[in-house]
Amino acid sequence: MNVFRLTGDLSHLAAIIILLLKIWKSRSCAGISGKSQILFAIVFTTRYLDLLTSFISIYNTSMKVIYIGCAYATVYLIYMKFRATYDGNHDSFRVEFLVVPVGGLAVLVNHDFSFLEILWTFSIYLESVAILPQLFMISKTGEAETITTHYLFCLGLYRALYLLNWIWRFYFESFFDMIAIVAGVVQTVLYCDFFYLYITKVLKGKKLSLPA
């Protein structure tokens, strides 16, 4: 464990909690892409099946359980409890255009052609594009609630911190995983436009609205 990975995990946890609290407190999921949240639930489910097969640490296990629990709780709030506030018209990204190519790529490009490894690879590739429906929805509505931008900032920051973690681990532990790194770079690059708007607008107290 290093400081980049720890702050990355905490940033990820913060994002998940911010979103859950936003929906729960405001009793509304306006502006939130349910499709992205379903993709994140799939990402955690396919990545953390090793909860059943191997134990790494209390931290590792508890974080995985928290991530999976919060992901499904968020999907439940969006599609069941507060479904009246779900903005399906603007959440129109065709996720099949993400899941199918990512599934094919996971079967073709992986470290080991085994069930758990292919699922893990699928999860890594899917996570890198899972935020697209959310970013697409913001571009369609033309704006985002400030709390939602804080959620997105923490979520984007987490994988950027993981990139620093991988540099650290390559240098100090001569460990690196090319699949995770390439997907992590793609994932972080997808946030660049948002990061620019967040830093130039939201941090100056303005509302995030598009076109910029």
Partner: peptide
Amino acid sequence: GIDSKHKDEL
């Protein structure tokens, strides 16, 4: 190793 398999990351 360079591409060690242990999955200790979240």
